[in-house]
Design a protein around this nucleic acid. Structure first.
Lengths: 247, 247
DNA sequence: CGCGCTATTGATGCGTCTCAAAATGAGTGG
DNA sequence: CCACTCATTTTGAGACGCATCAATAGCGCG
């Protein structure tokens, strides 16, 4: 348990977009005061539960999903280190999605009221958090475009590009290879496909020389052609902070 | 052109969730100072344009969509009177989606900096706007669930329920009938279907006695059975304001 | 070594897309 | 009020893609 700002991946991530003041860092450190260690493949909060806390992801991969009564499942968000989890839920008293870990993870829970405090005292940080939430929403619209209007292979290609560009933000030394700790069934639940289709599509991309796999490591061999295939939009490089409050 | 708070549907809509102070109303009125009249079926901003302003919808229906180069299209958001348009875009300098009207509409454009001013001076209103944006995101996850994991008929049923509950928020006297100014092609673009599938699915729902159509008016005949069919979650009745800043 | 989970591969079926034509409806001008 | 146009909706036939089911192969781990 620590609240030093040195090893805060939230601070690291947000610093990428905006210079954080000492007070800002203090606010963010408060969000990471508590730590929960999570086993892989465990549900942290379940759809319908009363909503008590939001989370900062310290380490690990997690996802949020929705269930249908007959067992169909849709994963709606992927969460990585430095992400804040639960924004869509803050408007309501019950959580809308189930949060599940796919690797060992460390979560930092914090109450909604911590956010309220930031709103009341740190306008510039508020704007940044708002912008981050807005970015999440863009990711969702891209997923919707993929699920609604792309073929199976295009969806898999799109997911790989989307992950690559997201992970690059924090890992600037990452170039074309990343770890993908999702089973094909889980990938299918992200993309609205079956595990079988994911397998066939992934093999297809591999045979076409677009990607390569080494265990769970995925290598993007021809990023340009992939991007063209799904008309991928590189939006996440930076955030427009020009309109933010001054302090 | 008017800025009186009397006929502001934004104030009306937000008042539904939280008691607005006079300063809050003043802030919101500023967002509606300008008015643009929009013809039906016209693009207001186009994907990739530099982002200058956000909008409040004063009257009319609009939607935001994404294009694929081959003509495929995905509508990702529907906007009604009292909605704020453009939150997902504020993080970036270019707009991510195209905004298009499907009826005659009146839009009130305002600059990002107006939002910044609210952040800096009105924490409680900031929290509410944040909650509204969060609610938008929930709508998106529900659309994703529908597009990814439902059959054509289920998707159409889900859309009808979703619209019914959203429109009820502002129209408290509305019970089971509403106007649906979308063509079946547009509905298809919302749901990731073709116009043909939408036609067949809608006819199906009508034959099953779940809905009825009178021109563009849609009547929900058996809401309970519809809700069960798609395991619909009624979340939008109210927003949790308990954690909001005091002033 | 053997167990269990994940990924692959193939055969078959179903649902939605595609293509096309007819029916319906709204708007316009004679 | 009718004739005409144009867009939308409906209906049908056929093709295609993904789901489903099932069997095999690969891999991590005790």
């Amino acid at each position: 348990m620590t609240s030093s700002t040195d090893n805060s991946c939230l601070v690291t991530k947000l610093s990428h977009y905006m210079t954080l003041s000492e007070t800002d860092r203090g606010h963010l450190a408060r969000l990471e005061e508590a730590e929960d260690e999570i086993e892989p493949q465990t549900d942290c909060t379940t759809e319908g539960d009363p909503l008590e806390r939001l989370y900062v992801v310290k380490t690990g991969w997690l996802y949020s999903y929705l269930d249908m009564p007959d067992g169909r499942r849709q994963i709606v968000q992927l969460h990585h280190a430095g992400d804040m989890v639960g924004f869509p839920d803050i408007a309501f008293t019950r959580v809308a999605t189930t949060l599940r870990s796919c690797t060992p993870a460390i979560l930092c829970p914090f109450p909604k009221s911590a956010l309220s405090e930031i709103f009341a005292t740190a306008p510039r940080l508020t704007a940044l958090i708002f912008a981050i939430a807005a970015r999440d929403q863009i990711v969702l619209t891209d997923m919707l475009r993929a699920t609604g209007r792309m073929t199976a292979t295009e969806r898999v290609a799109n997911l790989h590009l989307s992950l690559l560009t997201r992970l690059r933000i924090t890992n600037s030394r990452m170039t074309d290879t990343f770890n993908l700790p999702l089973s094909q069934r889980e990938i299918g639940d992200v993309l609205g496909l079956t595990n079988v289709s994911v397998s066939k599509s992934t093999t297809q991309l591999e045979q076409d020389g677009l990607i390569a796999r080494h265990g769970r490591q995925v290598q993007i061999l021809d990023e340009e052609r992939l991007a063209q295939l799904v008309s991928f939009d590189y939006r996440f490089d930076n955030i427009d902070t020009s309109w933010f409050p001054a302090y």
